[in-house]
Amino acid sequence: MAKQPYQPPEQSMAGQVTDSLLLLALVIGALFLPLWLGLAGGGKTTLELPEQTWAGMAQTPAMQAQWEQLGYTEETAAELIASRFDYSFSWGALALTALVIIAYFGFVFRFSEQEYREVIDEKFGKP
């Protein structure tokens, strides 16, 4: 025999608006907080160039020709050429990141399973 269907409460318009705004704030916060806190782009560094000449920046004549055709001079190209990613990292930070990802999926699958059983029981009845 099928289980008595669960009757959810009706949500007020104010509640719907609050829920929508909360999600919106979360989305915007996730993107902009690292930017506002100056943490985004922390993985980049700048090379110390010996001199701002094409040769000093390890650019061959072929490369130099392309830079110049793109409208760059030695001075304006220097910033782009000196920009590098810094891939040094701590194993602790890597372990923490891995743990957060695994914990997230663990949380979602565990509570999804609990909710899924309620869905199946209501749809098909108790086995």
């Binding site: 989305v27 907080l33 985004a40 922390g42 993985g43 990141t97």
Partner: peptide, 20 residues
């Protein structure tokens, strides 16, 4: 994680809070 580790954690935090 290599270069954008902060963004990765910020995004995971968003999904964890939203899931809760």
């Amino acid at each position: 994680f290599l270069g954008y580790g902060t963004q990765l954690l910020a995004m995971m935090s968003f999904y964890i809070i939203a899931s809760a």
